[in-house]
């Protein structure tokens, strides 16, 4: 499988990464190089093989459903590029 320029733009949009027109050809080439490299996997017989979901099988650890942390709003917004009154500020999303 290989990707065309339209697909490159579509993936970039899904990933929310702006791509300039000038970047599309070389991105397309690089992505196709990687896809060609992984293409060999299609020859592997995977009939009846379960996908690996955990390298070290173990029961999921659970804990009491209680609050263990909190009351630190200033620490939470401390790294925000824009914040106001302990809120994150984003560009307007509703009219």
């Amino acid at each position: 499988m290989s990707v065309d320029a339209v697909t490159v733009r579509k993936i970039a949009h899904l990933a929310r990464i702006k791509v300039n027109d000038a970047d599309v050809p070389h991105l397309q080439q690089e992505l196709n190089a990687i896809l060609t490299f992984v293409e060999q996997l299609s020859a592997v017989d995977i009939e009846g093989v379960e996908p690996l979901t955990s390298v070290m099988p173990m029961p999921m650890a659970k804990r009491e459903d209680v609050v263990t942390d909190g009351g630190i709003p200033d620490a939470i917004v401390a790294n925000a590029p824009v914040s106001e009154d302990r809120f994150f500020v984003v560009p307007k999303v509703v009219e």
Binding site: V38, I46, V49, E50
Partner: peptide, 14 residues
Amino acid sequence: AYYVRAQKIRTLIK
């Protein structure tokens, strides 16, 4: 075609 297949191959590697 890609992700699930790769995770199956991971099982084989393990």
